[in-house]
Design a protein around this nucleic acid. Structure first.
Lengths: 348, 348
DNA sequence: GTTAGCACTCTCGATTGATGAGTGCTAACA
DNA sequence: TGTTAGCACTCATCAATCGAGAGTGCTAAC
């Protein structure tokens, strides 16, 4: 989708590239005269104007008004991303800088995601979003019961993908810590490695404590599967709001609302591209109305069968695509590697 | 501090109150003529003008420019909060509405804080901040070790105030889950109820697994004590940015930066007022430069010896003080009650 | 102490006109 | 047929100007 049918002549493509890269830098409509001067073109501005007129006919650029320079359209950006910008690679020193920042990464996943979002957003000067890695099927690894009062206990459970969940639960009859420990040991032996349906299928005495625990455990596991990308870390909204296109306060507010941590999860397509691949969604291609003036650069991370997450950069359509794509791709590989290191060869 | 030395005549105080409440509503400088009309005063606008001139001499109000109405100064707001607005109580239906929202509260503390911040911000139409309850001394309740690979395990620990912490740790030699379980059981029996220094003082074999666990556990407990109010939940920045005083985009950005979740913790005085009390910090009284045009309404929650947190409302100095103070106070009592219910009579 | 009257100040919005950037077209040129 | 110079035309932007309106501060009368 979105790939323009028209094939551009070499020269027109070159002009389009110049227009877009100039516009990305200056945020100002670019005129024929200025283009010739800045790039010392061998052609006159009049010729450029003719070519621009054709580019406009074909829908790659537009006019804000009669006498302003040209501005790339969504279709223009699309063509640029697809055919003109090449396959950008991040310079080595930049890669090192990123790696260096990750060197401080603790093994605490939440901090880790926060760090990833911060590094990404800082590196591309735009907003960044990183979702927690998750698997399609959530299985129990181990559970623990901590007595709080006579009738209440804290259930802590660790899933196979090393997520920790907690929930306070109540029992009909008083229980002691000793008893809770025995229950936990027994259930761990029986349920370890199972997912919610399997645990629900396990026989337990009706009305027993085991049953009470089972309800809560299965509930948490199911909730986790349904959670989707809700726990997303967003960083660098500031960078976006600083862009001149959002200088008007009302616009800034709209964007802020769209990018609000709660809404954003829904905004992003649930299924990211396969790890390694990078998807670019430009302006109006975005199904979400408030994001119509923004572009999203998406990449999955993680491994095929294992836990997977999403990373994304969000910014105005006027975005440094080459750099952003390169950074997102590289970050994806770094995250995948970290994930492997952390969760190891758990499937073997 | 900040309490004005000057005692105002009854009439001038009344006029000040009217000016402030009008200005809070309209965000427009209020003029003498309009004041008389809106409130059907028995005095002429000329008299009001005279009184206004005196109020200005004494520093309670100012002029944006020669011929605009009057605007309250920080000192004016301070006087208003201190003497004029009385001791506002939240209407019963509003209290019920808040209670009702809390009815859905899960026992998951993080969600709970999020909810509190959301309710508070929505209720006062400003930004709200809620910090997690914490105690000065963090003690271990129970720990759990989950084998990940041969050399690594996940340490999950539950503190006395029912916080769950996790950390991946590595061992020099391979360990099995059985062994880890034995270690966890033994250490739970020895360390339950102790804080970091006490655990450090416990004898363990040098180089043993117990020692490795001890280092990590003590580290986590100490880190938690030092954490301060870092894990604050902020909600409703939108409300603030929508206010007309922040219509200019640059200003909005400044505020956004100041209220950024990361900076904000540092912004707020670490020690809140005692539970039940409400502190109002107006504009320039705030030590933080970027918050000079904002007011903060603060209250602590929790019980004397137990876990305590902070709630705050942040908005422009032109704020609905009576309502905000009443709401913050009420929310404080609700949160304290919830905290008691959740953690129970743990000291007994 | 209160009030009417009035001059004065200052903001705000609309209008105007000059400026300049940039286009689109035409005609000449290679 | 492609390229270029020339030129009229359009439109945003900016500064200057003007009038209206709001509000004050002062004075003098009540």
């Amino acid at each position: 989708m979105g790939v323009p049918a028209v094939e551009l002549s070499e020269r027109r493509a070159a002009i389009l590239r110049l227009i877009i890269s100039d516009y990305i830098q200056t945020a100002q409509p670019v005129g024929s005269e200025g283009l010739v001067q800045r790039h010392r073109l061998e052609l006159s501005s009049a010729t450029i104007r003719n070519e621009m007129a054709r580019l406009e006919d074909e829908g790659f650029i537009t006019h804000p008004h009669t006498s302003a320079g040209r501005v790339p359209s969504d279709q223009g950006y699309r063509y640029y991303v697809e055919f003109l910008m090449g396959d950008p690679e991040l310079p080595t020193d930049e890669k090192l800088r990123i790696l260096h920042q990750f060197h401080q990464a603790t093994s605490h996943v939440a901090q880790w995601l926060q760090l990833a979002a911060a590094v990404l957003s800082q590196s591309v000067h735009n907003a960044a979003l990183v979702t927690a890695p998750r698997v399609a099927q959530v299985r129990l690894r181990q559970l623990q019961l901590v007595a709080l009062h006579e009738h209440t206990a804290l259930l802590v459970l660790v899933t196979e993908e090393v997520k920790v969940r907690q929930q306070v639960m109540t029992f009909a009859d008083p229980v002691t810590q000793d008893e809770l420990t025995r229950i936990a040991n027994r259930l761990n032996a029986q349920w370890s490695g199972l997912d919610a349906p399997a645990i629900r299928a396990r026989p337990v005495d009706p009305g027993s404590r085991d049953e009470a625990v089972r309800i809560v455990v299965a509930g948490i596991l199911e909730e986790d599967e349904a959670a989707g990308f809700s726990d997303a870390h967003v960083e660098g909204l500031r960078n976006v709001l600083e862009q001149p296109e959002f200088s008007r306060s009302t616009k800034a507010l709209e964007v802020l609302e769209a990018l609000d941590e709660h809404n954003l999860a829904a905004t992003i397509p649930a299924e990211g591209p396969p790890s390694g691949g990078v998807t670019v969604i430009i302006g109006g291609e975005n199904p979400n109305a408030p994001l119509r003036e923004m572009s999203v650069i998406l990449s999955g991370y993680g491994s095929e069968g294992g836990p997977r997450g999403l990373l994304a950069v969000l910014g105005p359509t006027r975005m440094q695509y080459p750099r952003a794509v390169a950074t997102v791709r590289y970050m994806g590989s770094v995250m995948s590697a970290l994930l492997r290191r952390l969760y190891g060869d758990e499937d073997r």
